[in-house]
């Protein structure tokens, strides 16, 4: 591991100050440390957010509030979530490996970097990393996204898909917003898929009410411990079915339940993923009824 400093402040203001000074925010560290080690994200200092008292799951009324540094495994094991938000529990269970679920935090999971073997290649500097080229589009993109754009990497957060269909909101150090607004397309000027400003970090995610039914279905490259090739979440509130997917775009993406592959044409090497998306969308829809 390359050398860098480490701070574990107990005060959010101190953490924010360190982050404004250029430090990297860390939850479980499972995504961050591999990026630091490969030189994808250079950093002199890492700020561990786990001593800020941001862990915990609170059920109140119909909703649930999950602290940003709550581990993914604790979400998966929470009885209330399992009962009222089965799609969220399934998504938590689909994250990485058992050890990564124990270490990984909800905030870190929502803010993790895109998956792309060029983005994570130690010797290449792709467009999203500030370079000139999206290597994936001229190279081997068999597992990449279906949405045209400057970058065809894929958003990997299973939790994001499950929370999007629940109308979740995220709370940061400075504001509150719908989860969907946490993400935006990277631009030439700003090569990031998150809207967070320097010094800003997630403190909690809140789901306002429980759906009548919810589910999360994933297709991976093996039976377990695989980032989703495609993951589809669905929730039904009365007659209203919401759907979202990961693995198809570099943002967690809402889908039209009646036409899930709309706007997702893919390239020649990824066209197969449209079929997969349609299958999973149909399975998800069947699971939530109507």
């Amino acid at each position: 591991m390359r050398a860098f400093g480490y701070a574990r402040p107990a005060d959010a203001g101190e953490a924010a100050a360190l982050l404004r000074a250029g430090a990297r925010a860390m939850g479980g560290g499972t995504d961050l440390l591999t990026q630091l080690d490969r030189g994808i994200l250079p950093a002199d200092e890492v700020v561990d957010l786990r001593a800020l008292g941001l862990s915990g799951i609170e059920h109140d009324g119909g909703g649930v509030r999950i602290g940003a540094t709550t581990s993914v495994a604790d979400v998966e094991r929470d009885a209330g979530i399992g009962e009222r938000f089965p799609g969220l529990r399934q998504a938590a269970g689909a994250v990485g490996s058992p050890q990564l679920r124990e270490m990984g935090t909800v905030g870190g999971n929502l803010c993790q970097q895109v998956r792309c073997w060029y983005f994570r290649h130690p010797d290449l500097q792709c467009w999203l990393r500030g370079g000139e080229t999206c290597y994936a589009q001229i190279g081997d993109h068999r597992k990449h996204g279906l949405e045209p754009g400057d970058c065809i990497s894929v958003a990997p957060s299973d939790l994001a898909a499950a929370l999007l269909v629940l109308d979740a909101e995220v709370e940061t150090t400075g504001r509150r917003m719908p989860l969907a607004d946490l993400y935006r397309k990277a631009t030439a000027e700003r090569r990031s898929t998150l809207v967070l400003e320097p010094g800003e970090f997630l403190t909690a995610v809140e789901v306002p009410r429980a759906p009548d039914a919810s589910t999360y279905v994933i297709a991976g490259e093996r039976a377990a411990w695989s980032f989703a090739l495609v993951g589809v979440a669905a929730a039904r509130f009365g007659d209203d079915v919401r759907m979202a997917a990961i693995g198809v775009s570099n943002l967690p993406r809402p889908l039209d339940p009646d036409d899930p592959a709309a706007g997702l044409p893919g390239l020649e090497m990824t066209r197969w993923k449209r079929r997969l998306l349609e299958t999973l969308a149909s399975d998800a829809r069947a699971a939530v009824g109507r």
């Binding site: 480490y6 574990r8 499972t30 561990d48 050890q99 990564l100 124990e102 270490m103």
Partner: peptide, 19 residues
């Protein structure tokens, strides 16, 4: 590299000793 950290199975290669 799995070890137990306060009862949780974690990856000690991605865990700072200082944490």
């Amino acid at each position: 590299c799995t070890v137990l950290l306060d009862g949780r199975a974690v990856l000690s290669c991605l865990t700072f000793a200082s944490a």
